[in-house]
């Protein structure tokens, strides 16, 4: 098997110091392979975003290792890490983070601008990305003039513009209604399936989670369950392949997660 694109070993993240310290991640070890789609699911406060930030090299673990393509990243210089993020990763956030003062096209091409790509090439690649997401006609609009779904499509275009290896999405459908969510989910999964982009999604939405090849279920800073295989949406009886030998209460939690999804 090839080297995993992302790999963690005994990953620990502690916030704060002394009596106020909080163990957000309690020693996680897992691998994400190239081209895979992985959902990180769990209740609010379980440490999903913290984990994603560590994987995306936005933050440093208190202890443990994150390796990118088999190389531990802790020894890299901040500048190299910045460049890596710029070239290798794409980001989609729940709150969009679009710059209201700039046009849609300018927002989409921001990663290229940071990378130092020339204006003409930026615009060309930006238009191409917007076309892929059927947003080309909005290129000159202000980013604030768009609907939620359109905004998230712009964000996805921005995340794709540098042809990333890994696409990180933190609650990408958290601010969208269910119909729009569906569209965004399909776009993300098509990207993973058709373009071989590794997809790491943090989500509450188990409709989205169930469409991913693998799910890491988190609780209180630990991965309590790992499920493999795309499940039929909202099926309570879907086979649970991961987490053999886990204690019962944890399994119950997992089930309750399944139930919550069966609206």
């Amino acid at each position: 098997m090839s080297t995993p694109v992302l790999e963690t070993e005994n990953l620990v993240k502690v916030y704060g110091r002394g009596p106020a310290q909080f163990h957000a991640l309690k020693g996680l070890s897992f691998q994400i392979h190239r081209g895979e789609s992985v959902a990180i699911v769990g209740k609010s406060g379980s440490g999903k975003s913290t984990l994603m930030h560590l994987l995306a090299l936005l933050d440093e673990p208190t202890s443990g290792v994150v390796a990118l393509d088999g190389r531990p990243v802790s020894k890299l210089k901040p500048k190299t890490v910045s460049a890596l993020r710029n070239e290798t990763f794409g980001f989609v956030f729940q709150q969009f983070f679009l710059n209201p003062n700039q046009s849609v096209l300018e927002n989409v091409t921001l990663p290229l601008k940071i990378a130092g790509v020339s204006r003409s090439e930026r615009d060309q690649r930006g238009m191409h990305a917007l076309e892929q997401l059927e947003m080309a006609d909005k290129a000159k609009n202000r980013a604030t003039d768009l609907s939620g779904g359109q905004k998230q499509r712009v964000c996805i275009a921005r995340a794709l513009i540098n042809n990333p290896d890994v696409l990180f999405a933190d609650e990408p459908t958290g601010n969208l209604d269910s119909a729009t969510s569906e569209t965004v989910e399909n776009i993300l999964l098509n990207l993973q399936r058709d373009h071989g982009i590794t997809l790491v999604v943090v989500t509450h939405d188990e409709d989205l989670a169930s469409k991913c090849q693998r799910r890491l279920i988190m609780q209180d800073g630990e991965i309590v369950e790992e499920q493999t295989g795309v499940r039929v949406s909202s099926s309570r009886k879907a086979p649970i392949t991961g987490g053999q030998g886990r204690p019962a209460p944890r399994r119950r939690r997992l089930l309750s997660f399944g139930r919550a999804g069966a609206r």
Binding site: F97, I114, A115
Partner: peptide, 16 residues
């Protein structure tokens, strides 16, 4: 703050 955070997340270095 957000704009700066975004630019840094997208790989803009401190120096820049």
């Amino acid at each position: 703050t957000r704009e700066i955070g975004l630019m840094k997340a997208l790989g803009m270095s401190r120096a820049r």
